[in-house]
Amino acid sequence: MRRASLLFAWMLGQGLAGFVNATEAPLAQSSQLDHILLWGRSIDQVSGIMAVKLGFQVLPGRDPNGVANRFVRMPDRSYMELLGITRPHPKLDPGMDADQAVLHGGPGARMFGLRSPSLDQMRAYLQAQGFKPTPMFSASPNDPDGAGPSKPPRWRLFAFDTQPLSSGFFVIDYPPDGIKPHPAMDDRVAREHPNGAREVSAFWLLSADADAQRKQFERMGFTGSVAIRMPQVGARGYCVPVGSKRIYALQPEGAGAAADALRSGGPQVFGVSIGVEDLGLAKRRVERGYETTLDDYHGLLGESFLAPTESDLGLMMEFHAATTANAACG
């Protein structure tokens, strides 16, 4: 009897240990960049800039409560969600409300999302680290873009009661492709862009203290950061690996675009990096769109150029030649 009790205690201990290890295991390598929420002065203004001046394909969205959205989707499933207020007194969710409290109807981004196939485990891990994730939210069973009440919701996500970073942050996941039947050709065409865009390869987060952001990322399991400088915008900080992509946690270094943006707009999603098939073609499209000449530079992702989007979009947009390399911060 005593031997059986000891065996049961050992098995119970092994099971609990497995649960603890699963909760403690960092999930950063299974995560990816998902999207940013980019507000325009209006939905037509931000859509026009993305399409006419920058050469993206902009996909239609909806306008359920006075906030319209549209999408710029990439072949690698990353994307940019475009937002614009369409009537007085719109119905805003908490994240939108926090954005508008800072933007006051102007352009810019203050919120970003990561994608994780291990959403519940990541939430448990972050909670165990002392963060305060919200309960899980999901799309309505009757979501007009979903597959119907009998199928999994179109998306699930959690945010934070107290944000861990200088910019708003949430973690999201989607059901496997194919739950809602649609022609593969339609999906492929929706992700093709005249400027040759293939991926959103980096989010740029700007704050007054890049090291504090790095430490928060490490607490969340995103380790292996590398010190970086971005002299083209007057910034320094850290490259934080997120799966095969990266987040730049930046702060101003002297005078420049970063100092100007932080002074005028506070902490923010300062920019994005876009990988394109043909850098020369993308550059010529942007030069024609803005009727100007742009300079190349050798950046953190190789040969690159900056589109002059600060006043139009409220953020920096860097284009670089897309690569198949897997090293996130190499």
Results as ranks from 00 to 15, higher is better:
R3W: 15
L6E: 14
L7H: 12
A9F: 13
L12E: 04
G15D: 14
L16V: 12
F19R: 14
A22Y: 05
P26W: 07
Q29E: 14
S30M: 11
I36M: 05
I36G: 06
W39A: 02
R41K: 15
S42M: 01
K53S: 03
Q57C: 07
V58W: 06
V58C: 09
V58K: 02
L59H: 13
L59D: 03
N65K: 07
G66E: 05
G66T: 05
V67E: 08
A68D: 08
F71H: 14
M74R: 02
M74C: 02
P75H: 01
S78T: 15
M80D: 09
E81G: 06
E81F: 13
I85V: 13
T86N: 03
P90G: 11
P90V: 01
K91M: 01
K91V: 04
G95A: 07
Q100N: 12
L103I: 00
P107N: 09
G108C: 01
M111N: 01
R115K: 14
R115I: 07
S116A: 12
S116G: 06
P117Q: 09
P117V: 09
P117L: 10
D120E: 10
D120Q: 10
R123A: 07
Y125N: 07
Y125K: 07
Q129F: 01
G130N: 12
P133W: 00
S138C: 12
A139C: 13
P141A: 06
D143R: 11
P144A: 11
G146R: 05
A147R: 12
G148R: 04
P152H: 02
P153K: 03
R154T: 09
R154G: 07
A159Y: 01
F160Q: 06
P164K: 03
L165G: 10
L165S: 10
S166F: 04
S167H: 02
G168P: 01
F169G: 09
F170C: 01
D173H: 14
D173L: 00
Y174G: 04
P175S: 06
P175L: 06
P176F: 03
D177E: 05
I179Q: 07
H182L: 15
A184V: 09
V189H: 08
R191Q: 12
E192F: 15
G196N: 07
A197S: 15
R198C: 02
E199L: 04
E199A: 15
E199M: 12
L206S: 01
S207P: 08
S207T: 05
A212T: 08
A212F: 05
K215L: 13
F217N: 00
E218Q: 13
M220K: 06
V226N: 03
I228W: 00
P231Q: 03
R236E: 14
R236C: 01
Y238M: 04
Y238H: 14
P241M: 01
K245N: 08
E253I: 02
G256D: 12
A257E: 03
A258S: 10
A259C: 09
A259D: 12
R263K: 15
P267K: 04
G271H: 04
V276A: 10
D278E: 12
L279W: 11
L279N: 11
L279E: 02
G280K: 12
G280V: 10
G280M: 08
R285E: 08
V286W: 00
E287R: 06
R288D: 15
G289D: 05
H298G: 06
G299M: 03
L300K: 00
G302M: 08
E303K: 11
E303A: 13
P308F: 01
P308D: 05
T309A: 12
S311D: 02
G314F: 11
T324P: 01
T324E: 12
